[in-house]
């Protein structure tokens, strides 16, 4: 393909990032807005679908790759981060997103999250957090509040909710943000900025489950914008916002350049004869 063809092509629109598959989500699900925000971010950057890969785990939100024109890798529960990391390491030319829910990233796959952060490979991780297990019809999740009555906690959740943003900040994350599905414009912008970040970008997208834990009203009462004078390179300040649990700050908590620890290596071609000569008796 010559560059001329690409140049003369009309700019890609939202429709160019849609597939024929209809999302399986309930009407009103926050994930619709997250999907739309991802597509907006793709339009904003004019990402070619052939060079885009979206990796997911299991859960309602993890069905997302099928709804976007992209190469999709819909893996097993909780494992999208290592799969996305392997894909990006193997194919640095691709744009790689990892998407899923709070069950994927904060429960069964939690062990991979700090290591994804530590490796700081250039992938954008978007967690659709609804504080509930939706696909399995309403059990408590790692981010569900204490005392939360669900089918799996009929007398109330005895555990404390996990704090994902504090966790990733403590692990050394270089890009940390939170958005809300009811504020889709900001969410799209956060995703765009996360994709621009040249390391592991972590975005918590609050995305209510209308069927099993409708938190729209609650979130709308609690959310507020992180003030514009917040220094996004100040990790302690970011941590203070992350530790706020009564209210729900939205925006970029932390954003510093990813460390370029990966040395550019000169690569050589492989010759089996010369490799094996080390084993000659």
């Amino acid at each position: 393909m010559s560059d001329n063809i690409a140049l003369t092509q009309a700019p890609r629109k939202i429709a160019d990032y849609k597939t024929d598959l209809k999302p399986i989500w309930c009407p009103g699900c926050g994930d619709f807005a997250v999907l739309a925000a991802i597509q907006q971010a793709l339009v904003a950057q004019q990402i070619d679908p052939k060079d885009l890969a979206i990796v997911s785990g299991i859960g309602c939100s993890s069905r997302l790759p099928g709804f976007v024109q992209c190469y999709g890798l819909h893996t097993v529960h909780g494992r999208s981060i290592p799969a996305a990391t392997g894909l990006k390491l193997a194919r640095p030319d691709l744009t790689v997103l990892a998407v899923g829910g709070d069950g994927d990233y904060f429960s069964i796959g939690l062990g991979h999250l700090p290591h994804g952060v530590r490796r700081d490979v250039n992938i954008t991780c978007i967690v659709m957090d609804n504080e509930i297990y939706g696909l399995t019809k309403g059990q408590t999740s790692p981010t569900s509040p204490n005392g939360h009555v669900t089918k799996s906690t009929p007398t109330g959740n005895e555990a404390q909710p996990l704090n994902p943003l504090a966790l990733v900040l403590a692990s050394g994350a270089t890009f940390v943000a939170r958005g809300f599905s009811s504020q889709p414009k900001q969410l799209a912008e956060l995703i765009r900025l996360g994709m621009q970040h040249e390391g592991f970008a972590f975005i918590q997208a609050m995305s209510p489950c209308v069927t099993f834990y409708d938190t729209y009203k609650l979130y709308k009462e609690r959310v507020y914008q992180i003030p514009s004078d917040h220094d996004v390179t100040d990790r302690e300040a970011a941590m203070r916002y992350a530790l706020e649990t009564d209210r729900m700050p939205l925006g970029i908590f932390y954003n510093v350049p990813a460390e370029k620890t990966k040395a550019q290596r000169e690569t050589i071609s492989f010759d089996i004869e010369s490799y094996m000569s080390r084993y000659l008796a």
Binding site: A53, V55, Y71, L73, T75, V76, R79, I81, P82, A83, A84, T85, G86, L87, K88, L89, A90, R91, L94, G111, H112, H115, R119, R265, E266, T267, I268, S269, F270
Partner: peptide, 26 residues
């Protein structure tokens, strides 16, 4: 040195998933 990808994973689940991701990429 040969231009290949290499990763010491956090556990064996991550090992195989990273391999699956890389293989999906070709």
């Amino acid at each position: 040195k040969l231009g290949g990808g290499y990763m010491q994973a956090e556990d064996e689940i991550a090992s195989i998933m990273a391999c699956i991701g890389a293989s999906y990429g070709g």
